[in-house]
Design a protein around this nucleic acid. Structure first.
Length: 248
DNA sequence: GAAAATGTTATCAT
DNA sequence: TATGATAACATTTT
């Protein structure tokens, strides 16, 4: 469920519950006092990167699906205990599984930099570029996963965008020429929307060019698989066509 | 059936 | 104190 576009799909899926009032809510997560939702109304469903945000009157439930989280509408998943179960008056219900959740008090606009979210209409590539300028020493494969810079970008999008823009994942941010960096920032957004389109049609995997692949679709060169960066995430790239810049 | 994986955060070490 | 490594979380796919 995890990367930004998948959260957008979840948002679309859940949005029709907006306007309903909570009859009962139960949570097995110690951090969540589900009682607080009782009697409140679901005001809006939003997302910021990988965060799914459900606003109920004065509090917002922040849901992060981590690697394996999921949800169900209407009917709980068989044989599973929901981390949060919300029953609305009228009979609708929402179940959340294996997610990390937090309650945000009051307005959320202060909490979130919407211009960092690649899926947001407020996404601002210029802001991303200036944040990158402040991170010249980091590897680009790490910077792409930084949710403060590219909120919503996950490991698949990281791999595909680096491949599409022919940038070697082990480049230091500061060594990448400005024009190439701009192309990368733009593609982070563009590819995320392609991801969304393909995921919607269940054809996402078919379009992967680098992620989990063995051969470069451009030149047939074998792809390198490396656990790269400070987070040691799987990184697939072509030594031949993805450029490693040596700096100024 | 073991191992790995679309991820983050809290806690432990240094 | 600040930074970095490790564990914890939990489910589906390979």
């Amino acid at each position: 469920m995890p990367e930004g576009p998948s959260i957008v799909l979840a948002k679309e899926d859940i949005r029709h519950l907006t306007g309903l009032t909570v009859k009962t809510a139960k949570s097995t997560a110690t951090r969540i006092d589900a009682e607080r939702f009782s009697g409140t109304t679901l005001k809006s469903v939003r997302s910021w990167g990988k965060h799914l945000l459900l606003k109920f009157d004065n509090i917002t439930l922040r849901i992060h699906f981590l690697m394996f989280g999921s949800y169900a509408i209407g009917k709980p998943k068989a044989g599973r205990v929901a981390k949060l179960a919300i029953h609305f008056s009228g009979g609708d219900s929402l179940f959340i599984y294996a997610a990390a959740m937090t309650i945000i008090e009051g307005p959320i606009n202060k909490t979130y930099d919407w211009s960092a979210d690649v899926m947001s209409m407020h996404w601002n590539p210029g802001n991303a570029l200036s944040k990158l300028k402040a991170n010249r020493e980091r590897l680009i494969c790490d910077a792409l996963l930084d949710q403060q810079i590219f909120s919503g970008v996950g490991n698949i999008i990281k791999n595909e965008v680096l491949f599409r823009t022919r940038i070697h994942p082990l480049n230091k941010v500061g060594n990448i020429p400005a024009r190439r960096m701009k192309a990368l920032v733009d593609d982070a957004k563009d590819y995320s929307f392609l991801f969304l389109k393909w995921k919607r049609k269940f054809v996402l995997k078919k379009h992967w060019e680098a992620y989990t692949k063995k051969k470069c679709p451009r030149d047939g060169h074998p792809l390198t698989k490396l656990y790269a960066g400070t987070t040691q995430r799987r990184t697939f790239f072509c030594e031949q066509c993805q450029e490693l810049f040596t700096g100024p």
